[in-house]
Nucleic acid binder design. Structure first.
Lengths: 211, 211
DNA sequence: CGCACACTGTGAACTCGTTCACACTCTATA
DNA sequence: TATAGAGTGTGAACGAGTTCACAGTGTGCG
């Protein structure tokens, strides 16, 4: 389900983080960085940074470190699909709107092309610049719009049906906010992002760590 | 920063997930489960389930498996603080409201006691049943209300300052939605939940996994 | 000119979470 | 009463990701 490419999930996450940091450096007019500088900004070890950059195939020099612009370019070609990827969001509640706002225009290579909701009041409306459709058109739209990624922000009880519909339309990746383990065929990647679970984890370690 | 207790983060997450599943079983009137049943619902291996339950100190029987009610009780005493823990939410945007709605009343042991925002229009208002305060009272309220956990839903640029204020007030755990690595003293646990990073990860693996 | 230094790239060692595999226990059946 | 079967508990093996440690390389300074 995961590292079919030989690249670890954690590595991809960190690379995504580096890109954000590097964008900030570029903005600030900084031309090059050393691994230990990225390391402290990212909160990981310097060796880790070098390893990650190694998986990109990019090389720095001991004298000037890594070129910021070149490294960003290298990350872009690693993370992004050349022609971008289409995304849909299912479930336009508070969470859905938050997610939509979060992404609009931020990642040009990830295009939010449609929203879905069960509420008829929302059908046809344009929210955050994207049209909302009835949820039963999910499979159809995913197929016709060539969508590869679905963000699932519906209640737990509905999540599996939504996931099935997404997969039926040809989606290859699901970002799942519902607190259930989705059942998908091999070749479909699911990332779970359960806030309640995360909060309980924080609560646990907040209690145990020195308190 | 993490497993100071000897218990892995992943284990705590799974235990939290089991509790949700078990609550459903209890609801359905099911009295006992076997590890392989939990395993398929949770999407992990049966051996994993048994290992996790072992860390709880609970024991089942080969004949009847695990008692649902007893196992829940065991998880409760593992995850929850006897007197509960107080939580604040900083940043009442779409995301903040989504989080607030998500939690209200769902976890009696985690009490959302205050909201904070920089927007003066929100000060004094009651949102999702909780009062919103000006953000500069953060440290003070965290201390006076004995808050141990802060949920940070502010923009990246403000997140470090918010985290500092939380730590100054005595918070021991932070659930961070901002896309930055927070700098906190040892003994404070930070969990990062960056949606953009997660989405990019899904995009990457959606592309690589068989497509 | 040559030495000391700082940083990268990377094989090897290590850590730690997961899986394996099996001894043990109890029930059901003949 | 003996036997087959199903499931738990757990030491040991495994494997993936991280860290270590050092060779390689170019710069700057004495």
């Amino acid at each position: 389900m995961a590292g079919l490419t030989g690249v670890a999930e954690e590595t991809v996450e960190r690379i995504s983080m580096y890109r954000v940091l590097l964008a900030g450096l570029l903005q600030a007019g900084i031309k090059s960085v050393f691994s230990h500088q990225l390391s402290t900004s990212a909160g990981v070890s310097a060796a880790q940074v070098r390893r990650d950059i190694m998986t990109l195939g990019y090389s720095g020099s001991p004298q000037h470190g890594y070129g910021v612009a070149e490294l960003i370019e290298s990350i872009d070609s690693f993370l992004d699909a050349p022609d971008g990827q289409n995304v849909v969001l299912v479930g336009v509640g508070n969470l859905g709107r938050a997610v939509a706002n979060y992404f609009i225009g931020r990642r040009p290579k990830l295009r939010l092309v449609a929203l879905f909701d069960v509420d008829p009041d929302k059908h046809g409306r344009v929210i955050c610049g994207v049209r909302c459709h009835p949820q039963d058109r999910l499979t159809e739209v995913i197929r016709s719009e060539n969508v590869s990624i679905a963000i699932v922000g519906v209640p737990a009880a509905a999540a599996q049906a939504v996931a099935d519909a997404c997969v039926a339309g040809g989606a290859r990746g699901i970002l799942n906010f519902a607190p259930v383990a989705l059942r998908v065929p091999p070749g479909v990647y699911v990332e779970n992002l359960d806030m309640a679970r995360s909060l309980e984890k924080v609560a646990y370690f907040a209690r145990k760590a020195g308190g």
